[in-house]
């Protein structure tokens, strides 16, 4: 089946900084793909590029027809892609405190001058996001509802455009623990009911376990491991994924591998494998000499997006 969006060797550079450095991946219809990584991995830059908010330096982002960015008369992409909608981390910051819930959710329609059946569409989006009956919420302001409800309003504002692809940047990171599950359950429900695809960016592996069909692990501008969630979180092969998983407090079955230092500056990406200066496998001295020398001199390259699962590591065969 064709993809909702397909990324082919996408680069986003800021001067000498290679924030996204060759990413190829596609999002399939009805799929939840989790892009997992730490700060500095380039995951937020990448999702902004998919939304059309960030120009790519090279490479290609191909959308299905319905998700295609609409070119504006002025040649800009100011209004973004109709079929691609985004929700952000902090619902309070994302909502205009002086607009009613109705106005907030209707805004996308108004910008696109789609005024037919506005009230009905706003109502449908709100109830789809679990705010029922929707009419009760129409006249309310963001401060009158709870944090969990605010995130539902943000989701309703995205769903009113009936997107094919929902981009979510840490959708539950600023929410209370007990509310988190409700919002994640809502996202799964939306996929089931509308056939939507979701690309979710997170540092939270538990979130991926909860909702993602596939996981892409990013490190320093590249996807270093890609595959079905059960496999990536159950039997990770890339030493970076293994280390990340070993420090998740929710897993107790692995011996902790705490990496030294932090992700390097994307202006100075190490030669060879970009992970090699922090790689516990290389440091363990158990690798064969010819493999170890490849790690420090030769880039293993991006993972193969068409493989069922793939890891960008010389030691993985």
């Amino acid at each position: 089946m064709s993809s909702i969006v397909s990324l082919n060797d996408v680069h986003v550079h800021f001067g000498s900084s290679r924030a996204v450095d060759g990413v190829s991946v596609d999002v399939k219809p009805g799929e939840v793909l989790a892009l997992v990584g730490e700060s500095g991995s380039g995951k937020t830059t990448l999702i902004r590029a998919v939304q059309g908010l960030q120009t790519v330096t090279s490479g290609e982002i191909a959308y299905t027809a319905s998700a295609e960015p609409v070119s504006e008369p002025d040649g800009g992409r100011g209004r973004g892609n109709r079929g691609v909608q985004m929700i952000f981390q902090d619902p309070t910051g994302a909502l205009n405190p002086r607009q009613t819930i109705y106005e907030i959710v209707a805004e996308g329609l108004r910008i696109r001058k789609e005024s037919q059946n506005e009230a009905e569409r706003v109502g449908r989006a709100l109830s789809r996001a679990g705010l029922r009956p929707p009419e009760r919420f129409f006249p309310m302001y963001p401060h009158q509802i709870s944090g969990g409800q605010r995130q539902r309003v943000v989701i309703a504002g995205a769903m009113v455009m009936e997107p094919d692809l929902l981009l979510a940047d840490e959708p539950v990171a600023s929410l209370d623990a007990s509310i988190r599950g409700e919002i994640l359950a809502l996202m799964l429900e939306l996929v089931e009911e509308t056939g939507l695809s979701i690309l979710v960016v997170t540092h939270d592996l538990g979130l991926a376990w909860n909702i993602a069909d596939r996981v892409a692990v990013m490190y320093l501008g590249r996807i270093v491991e890609l595959g079905p969630t059960e496999q990536i979180l159950g039997e990770p092969r890339h030493p970076y994924t293994r280390a990340l998983l070993s420090v998740v407090p929710e897993t107790t079955r692995m011996e902790q591998q705490i990496l030294i230092g932090e992700i390097p500056d994307s202006r100075r990406i190490p030669v060879g494998c970009r992970f090699h200066p922090r790689c516990p496998l290389l440091q363990s001295g158990t690798l064969a000499a010819e493999v170890a020398s490849r790690c420090t001199t030769e880039d293993p390259g991006p993972v193969d997006m068409n493989a069922d699962s793939a890891a960008a590591c010389w030691a993985v065969t």
Partner: peptide
């Protein structure tokens, strides 16, 4: 797995 758990309300 594919079953997030939360509480209703705030």
């Amino acid at each position: 797995r594919l079953a997030p758990s939360g509480l209703a309300g705030d």
